[in-house]
Design a binder for these strands. Structure first.
Length: 118
RNA sequence: GCAGAGGAGCAGACGUUCGCCGGAUGGAAACAUCUGGAGGAAAGUCCGGGCUCCACAGGGCACGGUGGUGGGUAACGCCCACCGUCCGCGAGGAUCGGGAAAGUGCAACAGAAAGCAAACCGCCGAACGGCAGUUUCGACUGCGCGUGGUAAGGGUGAAACGGUGCGGUAAGAGCGCACCAGCAGUCCGGGUGACCGGCUGGCUGGGUAAACCCCAUCGGGAGCAAGGCCAAGCAGACGGAACGGUUGCCUCGGUAACCUCGAACCGGUCCGGUUCGCAACACCGUCGGGUAGGCUGCUAGAGACGCAGAGCAAUCGGCGUCCCAGAGAAAUGAACGUCCUCGACAAAACCCGGCUUAUCGUUCCUCUGCCAAC
RNA sequence: GGGCCCAUGGCUCAGUUGGUUAGAGCGUUCGGUUCACAUCCGAAAGGUCACAGGUUCGAGUCCUGUUGGGCCCA
């Protein structure tokens, strides 16, 4: 059996403004105390991620830390999530969110939205 | 030992595992191996320069910046040294530090008066007049009433026309003298200079230029989302000024050059320059439409480190070694373990030189004052 | 990344060449009018002029730095 790889390459990231706009307009949305998640089927077999952290979260150092934690959470969960989705994560403005919080919220919210997508 | 002054540096460390961005090598590819991977402020965008585009970036005026002197530099509003002023016992620190006898303006309230001299409460009675008294009929004494003298003292104010002392006087006053402060001089000495020291003179002419201004000096505008190339895609519309002249050539109605005029541009304006000009397809302006993809600019540089040298220093030239982020929804994270003093402020986005602001701690060097011991 | 602008009562704005005590409208509160409400009339409260330092006798105003907010570009 092939060993599962936990990678996060450029092809797994959302890189165009158009992609983000389509997900905001036509995707499903769910949130909790830590995250706000948008999900849309992309018609392929791979799952892609985009992260949006606004200036209101703080300085560049704080924003980078949040972005890296969210990307790390996705990297570890990628084989437990359904394939063929485009996901956009927007974190909430709170200072006490850890990697474990993000992982838990991401798994729960994506599962819920996948059920809604059918 | 205590208190303090100045300067330089570091910015948790190590190991294992899973990942991220760039490069090299191998491979058809997937990928594998090796290797590099944020800061002292990367920040604020406050200055300066490189680079790119605006054809060139020329002169005057306007506008804006700078403002002791000498040096450093690619350049600066930065740095170094020195001078002046202020603060500190001292080591040292602070300093938008040109001009107020070129001109204009401003100073509320208070005060008599806010810039040119004047006089509210005062002080005085020398001079002229008045009144009263005395009189030897020359005048003398008193009053402070008028004309006056004065700026000592009081009071107002942020600021009131040098300060202190002695002399002087009716009272006073640079009126005279001594010292201090300030000013002037074609003076003398030192210094590249800012300026310093001295001599002589007469005793005056406040503040504000981060008010206008004057003087000196500097500055063309925009910015890597600049700019270049490729691909894809759309839709254009409106507006703008001479039918001028001379000369040459020649296929004889065209063409070229020059002059004049006009328009546009040179992102303030004039000169000056460039382009276009008989007719719309060019040029310029205004409005509108399309794209939001790729490559490049993009990191070898006012570069880093070391060595000796010049210079008080900032800095400079010389030699040697090294290559040290280059993304584009944007790379450094996570888990575990060990140790310590338990880790601040904070992350490149074209690149440099500065300034300013934020910052837990900690190390080193030089120096000053006081106390104690020798 | 780069360029530029703004900050004055709860809200929207004035504030001259620095000068005594910073104004206006709306809103708020109180009183009057009405059986009651609205309208109307009268009165009052409410400001560290975003923050810090400097120049000046004196700063909302001039200079420097900080903070917060907004606009533009390919």
């Amino acid at each position: 059996m092939e060993r599962r790889r936990y990678k996060f390459t450029r092809e797994q990231r959302l890189r165009k403004s158009l992609d983000f706009e389509q997900i905001y307009d036509r995707g499903l949305r769910a949130g909790d105390g830590h995250l706000l998640v948008f999900v849309l089927r992309n018609g392929t077999s791979s799952t892609r991620l985009g992260v949006s952290v606004s200036r209101k979260h703080g300085s560049a150092v704080v924003r980078n830390l949040k972005r890296r934690r969210l990307k790390e959470a996705f990297r570890r969960l990628q084989h437990d999530l359904p394939s063929g989705l485009d996901i956009v994560i927007v974190p909430r403005q709170r200072l006490d969110s850890e990697l474990a919080d993000y992982s838990r919220s991401l798994a729960k919210l994506v599962k819920k939205l996948t059920a809604e997508l059918g």
